[in-house]
Design a protein around this nucleic acid. Structure first.
Lengths: 245, 245
DNA sequence: TTAATAGTGTCTTTTAGACAGTATATC
DNA sequence: GATATACTGTCTAAAAGACACTATTAA
């Protein structure tokens, strides 16, 4: 189109007030039966010394690429089979003292627990149990809360829990993931039957684990993630009427 | 903090490459039993003359404020009890030929059908059945598709359908909303009982509609939206196994 | 009168959840 | 042997869905 080319030639990007776009990542994993989030200690202003979600400015790249890159650069955590999804964008004026900064938050689920190495941008990075992750920089407390709510909801109707597990896992391990994320005990027997009854949630490897539990019990069978993208029927949280209203 | 103030004084926002942030709104309503989306005909480059979602640059304001403002300015549609929620952010390099533009998409649900007046920014604005809303400017086809998927899913486990209805509505009207959004017929009798059995979904006004259907039938009772934020148990779509994998 | 719609009854199937019970491991 | 765990059986209650039926209204 001639008109469009002409328009583009005369267009001045600098005419708009400066804004910046960052990505911040809520990376979750299970460690010792507890749900943990990856935090960095900020080495630079603003909020130097405060804990924050890993993140940084978006370059000439897609948003999800930026999220994955920042996760690796800033924490030394390089996740291969990591599940990454966009959470929400935060852009209230004043949420960053430097300038107008819009942060596109991502949610990541890490299967195992790679101990992070300190990267270039951060003085340190570590997994922190989510209950202890408070007083974060910027509006990251809110972002974390939104991420946790999303994660808890998605466990119900998607096979997301398998993203927290390794390639092969037992039904018990899967149940412990649900327990950690929801913060509620689940009946072992009913959970077992339920998981196996949902088509495509898990599939058997035919193998069994090399040994039983620490204090006895039979060797459990091993499973891997199935091909379902949604759980039908869903695996609902124990109903608390209060949450509904 | 002395350190932080010092840092801010020496900070130069112009040092970063220019980016822009816009909001785009997927505004949905039901018209004559069909799900419709609000589109504008672009009056300016780029994509002049093409249909697009209403939207524009974010000013010194919160994102949801920007979304509501653009909806009003660009289409003349001023929605009072409109439900507005953030959908997703789109930021692929090259999605806008002018510069790097990140678009924060919002999803809006309009109860009635205010016929839009042409506003300042747009050559025209009109409601279009979603099946006919193709070939949109930028990546708006994708944004619309994501918005529809979100809307369809939220009808299942939230009372969102009431946002499409007026202050008072009949169970039949509510069912027609589900039918229009999901594109599937629902059994009238079972739907009726189901809606009334979900706590807090709807509450009776005690009144009945002034008359029955066009071709006969009793005067239906009137209801208004209840206080539930989630539907328990949910109102699930007729299962299509294919959607799951 | 005809036909369409509102609303209810009832039956079957599926699912959730409580609870018990058996087999198999580890210490 | 004591004990913890994996897994299954069984029963009950809740819910989904199919289908039938009555009552009420507009044309």
């Amino acid at each position: 189109m001639h008109d469009e080319a002409e328009f583009l030639a005369g267009y001045d990007p600098g005419a708009y007030p400066a804004v910046a776009v960052t990505v911040d990542v809520v990376a979750l994993t299970i460690h010792a039966g507890r749900l943990c989030v990856l935090l960095v200690e900020r080495g630079e202003q603003p909020f130097a010394g405060r804990r924050a979600l890993p993140g940084g400015f978006v370059r000439d790249e897609a948003l999800d690429v930026a999220a994955m890159r920042e996760l690796g650069e800033e924490t030394g955590v390089h996740l291969e089979r990591v599940h990454l999804e966009q959470l929400k964008t935060y852009g209230d004026p004043g949420r960053d003292p430097r300038m107008r900064v819009f942060s596109v938050a991502y949610l990541a689920f890490a299967p195992s627990l790679p101990e992070p190495e300190s990267g270039t941008d951060a003085a340190g990075a570590y997994w922190v149990p989510v209950e202890e992750a408070t007083g974060l920089a910027f509006d990251h407390d809110v972002i974390l809360a939104d991420g946790l709510e999303r994660a808890r909801a998605k466990l119900e109707y998607t096979p997301l829990a398998t993203a927290f597990a390794g390639d092969e896992f037992t039904i018990s391990e899967l149940r412990q993931i649900y327990t950690a994320v929801w913060g509620e005990e689940l009946h072992a027997g009913n959970f077992h039957r339920k998981v196996l009854s949902v088509p495509g949630f898990v599939e058997s490897t035919g193998e069994t684990a090399p040994r039983g539990g620490e204090r006895g019990g039979p060797k459990p069978k091993l499973y891997r993630a199935g091909d379902a993208r949604l759980l039908h029927p869903a695996l609902l949280r124990p109903t608390r009427e209060d949450d509904v209203r």
